[in-house]
């Protein structure tokens, strides 16, 4: 288990560089061996990335101190659910327009993060929606979806 976990970053790096290299190789209208062509430089970069990936794979890591920086499964879940809420918010933005979507998102996320009284929650949410609207829409003529 530990071995797989420690090898993972290196493997991901190697895979990413190989994908980039293959894309550079199949690039149309560009000769990979012509330094002035469109694919020479990206191919070079992908090779450097590949070398970095291999280095990381064989590197002996100084054991990082767990505890302070490490993430527990619970924290991961907490964070990813918040991220999912942001994604849903963006999704809602294009369906139910700016005002309701933002208000719902703010109220819901502050509720989710806890320790904010309902009064403060609503006050801050409504306040920010109005300020952001005035700033972006009225002043900068941004049309919300």
């Amino acid at each position: 288990m530990y071995a797989i976990k420690s090898l993972a970053p290196g493997m991901v790096m190697i895979i990413v560089s190989l994908v980039i290299l293959s894309q550079a190789l199949v690039m149309e209208r560009a000769d990979i061996f012509d330094p002035a062509g469109g694919s020479f430089f990206p191919a070079l970069i992908s090779l450097i990335m590949l070398i970095c990936g291999i280095t990381v794979l064989f590197q002996k890591y100084p054991q990082t101190e767990h505890g302070e920086e490490g993430f527990t499964a619970k924290e991961y879940r907490f964070i990813l659910i918040f991220f999912a809420m942001v994604v849903v918010y963006v999704f809602l933005l294009s369906i139910i327009t700016f005002f309701p979507a933002t208000l719902i998102f703010l109220v819901a996320s502050m509720f989710y993060l806890k320790d904010v009284s309902w009064k403060l929650n609503f006050l801050v949410s409504i306040g920010s929606v109005i300020v952001i609207y005035l700033l972006f829409s009225e002043l900068f003529n941004i049309i919300f979806p």
Binding site: M85, I96, P100, A101, I104, F111
Partner: peptide, 22 residues
């Protein structure tokens, strides 16, 4: 429970909008 409530709010909001758009 909290998560459930949030999801419900979002789903309701999404449904409400669907008709509006039509």
């Amino acid at each position: 429970k909290n998560i459930l409530i949030i999801i419900i709010i979002f789903v309701l909001a999404a449904c409400g909008s669907e008709t509006e758009n039509a």
